[in-house]
Computed example of a mutant assay.
Amino acid sequence: MSKLTAQEIETKLLRFPDWEYYDNAIHAEFEFENFKDCFSAMSRIAFECEALNHHPNWTNVYNVLTITLSTHDAGGVTMKDFNLAEAIEHIVEPEE
C-alpha cells in the first residue's frame, strides 16, 4: 500500500468532515452520550480493525474517543486508513 500525497489526502478528507490531517496521520474525535456508548462503539470498531487488519492509535476518556490513523509500514496515510475511517464513520454516525 503506497503513501498518499498531502493533496490526495486533503481531497479524500472532503468526504470525512470529522477528520483532520496533521502529523503524518488523519485524526478524529467523537463524543458520545456516556461511557457505555463510547465503549460500545470502540468494541464495534475493534471488529472492523481486525477484519481490515489495520489498527488505530486511540484513546478514550469517559465519553470521548480520539482516533489517529496512519499506515506505519508505508510511513504515512494510505487508502487503508481511509477504508478504516469510512468503517468507523458508519459505526459512530449511522445513517438514519
Rank of each mutant, 00 (worst) to 15 (best):
T71Y: 08
A25G: 07
L65P: 01
K12Y: 02
H55E: 07
I45C: 01
T59V: 11
H27Q: 08
H72G: 02
V64W: 06
P56N: 09
S40L: 14
D81A: 09
V77A: 10
T5D: 02
H72Y: 12
A74I: 03
V64N: 12
D73Q: 15
D23M: 07
G75K: 09
E8T: 05
S40T: 10
A85E: 06
E20N: 07
E50K: 05
A46V: 04
G76I: 12
A6S: 12
S40Q: 11
L65E: 01
H72E: 13
E20R: 13
F47Y: 11
E50H: 04
D18Y: 06
L65G: 01
D18Q: 14
Y62A: 01
H90P: 01
R15Y: 03
N24M: 04
D18A: 13
L65K: 12
P17F: 08
D23Q: 14
G76H: 12
K12I: 00
W19S: 03
L69N: 04
I9W: 06
A28Y: 07
I91Q: 01
C38A: 15
L13Y: 11
E8N: 11
Y62M: 07
Y21M: 02
Y21I: 03
L84T: 15
V61Y: 13
I26F: 08
L52Q: 14
S2L: 06
L69H: 06
F32I: 05
Q7Y: 02
T71K: 10
H54P: 01
N63M: 01
F82Q: 15
E10S: 12
V92M: 02
N34C: 06
F32R: 03
F39V: 00
Y21T: 09
S40C: 10
A25C: 08
A87R: 14
I67S: 06
L52A: 12
T59Q: 14
Y22W: 10
F47G: 00
V61T: 15
F39N: 00
A46I: 02
H27E: 05
D23G: 07
E33N: 14
C38H: 04
E89L: 07
N53L: 09
F30W: 09
N60L: 03
T78K: 09
H72V: 11
K80V: 09
L69D: 01
F35D: 00
P94C: 04
H27A: 12
Q7S: 08
L52F: 14
F39E: 00
V77T: 04
E8W: 04
A51N: 14
F82K: 11
T5F: 06
H54E: 12
N34P: 08
T78E: 14
E48L: 01
F35G: 02
E95M: 05
D23W: 04
E29S: 15
A87L: 05
C49Y: 02
T78M: 07
